[in-house]
Amino acid sequence: MNQVITFGEVLMRLSPEGNKKFIQADKLEFYFGGTEVNVGISIANFGENVKHVSCISNDFIGDTAIAYLRKFGVSTSAIVRSNRPLGVYFLEVGAVMRPSSISYNRSHSSFSEIEPSMVDWDKALRKGKWFHWTGITPALCKGGYETLKAGLILAKEKGMIVSADPTYRKGLWKYGENAKDVLNDLMNYSTIFIGGINEINEILETNFNDSNDDFIEASKALINKFPSIEKVFDKIRTAINASWHKIRARMWNGKEFRETTDFEITHIIDRIGTGDAFAAGLIYGLQKFDDYKSMEFASAACALKHTYEGDVNYATVDEVMGILDGNTSGRFNR
């Protein structure tokens, strides 16, 4: 009973090399990812037992995606297959004052075919201790919402820890369900909230601002509406430009407010998946450390992800702890 379960779409990312626009490029690099996949692989890189649940294309691209997950030790035993193609997104990586740009091709992907009857949740959760979900999955399709809800109901019955990262993105909700209603429904099965003021305002229809005082009041209001939620964690990003950001975190655990100091990333290699790295660090940390140390670990993991190309955080526990110990000069390890 020590497995972390993630559920969501597996995507292929296509990007020109470096910071080129597509019109400049004559060849592309590809990576596999997806919000929940990124979380799962990162936790596996920390040495934990992880299973990913999804629906993947029944072709050589799907085979390659599954092999990619297995390379990191992520169990794929609960993945089902579809004759539809794997979802794809295209990314132009920005620099300095030029922002990055993303275009998705996932409306008719293999994951869009997911239905509750396709996933044996009792088997998938048999060794589960922790279930992680994000607002991306229920935003994609009704089957994603219904399948996720079925998993969450069983996870709650089994007494699993459930972390929720609502990740509200207005442009994804196209199949007719109301985002607020769906997220409110799913929050009833969650125990850890990973999100900021924007997500809380969307769920509660409130107008809290970004101040620490408002964050505390927003967290209290969230816990009051959803008593199953025990702790609220928020990653704060300050962008100087597309290449230079600062990261810190804050929390309300029902008893106290704490905030970390900033990690400064002065040359971002790849921003994709950094929020997922924070969530993964938090999930790992809360199983090993106290709340504040968990938040520090998550922030350091997030900062490190900015230094890796691709969607996934390749950092190990020792590397994250090295950042927390102040080893941020980038000197050679010999």
Rank of each mutant, 00 (worst) to 15 (best):
N58K: 07
K305T: 14
T137P: 11
D165K: 00
T6I: 14
R81T: 02
N198K: 15
I216Q: 08
D63R: 07
N224M: 06
E48R: 08
F22V: 10
P116A: 13
G176D: 01
I194H: 04
K220F: 05
A242M: 08
G196Y: 09
H245D: 12
F32Y: 12
D59L: 12
D122S: 11
E113L: 06
D276H: 13
S243E: 07
Q3V: 08
K129E: 14
S299E: 07
K255V: 02
N198P: 04
G143P: 14
P166S: 06
I268F: 03
W133P: 01
G33Q: 03
E205V: 12
K123H: 06
I56A: 09
D63H: 11
G275W: 01
P166N: 06
N327M: 08
E29D: 05
S107Y: 12
Y89T: 11
K293T: 03
K142W: 10
V96G: 04
A301G: 15
D59K: 10
K231Q: 14
F22Q: 02
N253T: 11
F131G: 02
N207M: 13
N83C: 03
G281W: 06
N313M: 12
K21I: 06
R331S: 03
I265V: 14
C141H: 12
P138K: 14
F46S: 14
N19D: 08
N184G: 13
S329N: 06
G281S: 12
T134I: 15
D318Y: 07
I200W: 07
V162A: 06
A315P: 08
S107I: 02
L154P: 00
G171M: 10
K129G: 05
V320E: 03
Q3R: 08
R13I: 03
S82V: 07
S109V: 04
R106C: 02
A279L: 05
S219E: 01
G171C: 09
A277C: 10
K235Y: 03
K27P: 00
E9G: 07
L86K: 03
D213W: 01
F226W: 02
G62L: 10
K180L: 10
T238Y: 02
T238S: 01
F7C: 09
F60M: 15
D291C: 05
I240W: 10
S101K: 09
D290G: 00
I161E: 13
E319K: 04
G87Q: 08
I43G: 09
F263N: 00
G195W: 15
T76L: 07
G171H: 12
I229T: 12
K293D: 00
V119C: 02
V88D: 05
V74I: 11
R237F: 08
Q287R: 11
K142F: 13
N253P: 11
S243G: 15
G281N: 07
T137M: 15
A221E: 14
M97G: 13
T260R: 09
E199R: 08
K156S: 15
L69R: 10
V10L: 09
D270N: 02
F278L: 10
A301I: 11
D270W: 00
K149Q: 14
F30Q: 02
E9A: 07
T274R: 04
D185G: 09
Q287E: 04
I229W: 04
G8H: 15
G40V: 15
S100C: 05
S109N: 05
D120M: 09
G34E: 00
E115W: 10
G151R: 00
I216F: 02
A179R: 15
N105L: 10
G47C: 05
G34V: 07
R13D: 00
I102S: 07
K293C: 02
V50E: 15
